[in-house]
Amino acid sequence: MTPTYYLVLAAALFTIGAMGVLVRRNAIVVFMCIELMLNAVNLTLVTFSRINGTLDGQIMAFFVMVVAAAEVVIGLAIIMAIFRSRRSASVDDANLLKY
């Protein structure tokens, strides 16, 4: 095997995460799927860093982690705010714009 196997694994994880975002209705689980996609991309970045022999990929993954942490904080706060006003964490129930 070669390090490209990591890329195949990361592609599979990313696809599963994307499917989860499309299929699941619980906002928190959708959020977890997004985290999975970010993690898959991080794995590709680390692997690319090793393939290319420079540390830029790892730095990039580091910044992705920082952004993901900020994103989780804000996203979960938004989910909490929606839950407080609509009493539901389902993405189907946030449909006021529809009517």
């Binding site: 860093s49 090793r50 993954a61 580091f62 982690m65 942490a69």
Partner: peptide
Amino acid sequence: YVINAGPFLGMVQIIVYTGAIMILF
């Protein structure tokens, strides 16, 4: 990450992601 010559990122992954972010979830 640790295997792929990124021990720092591996530790950050475990501490920040599985430690902080998942606990937040």
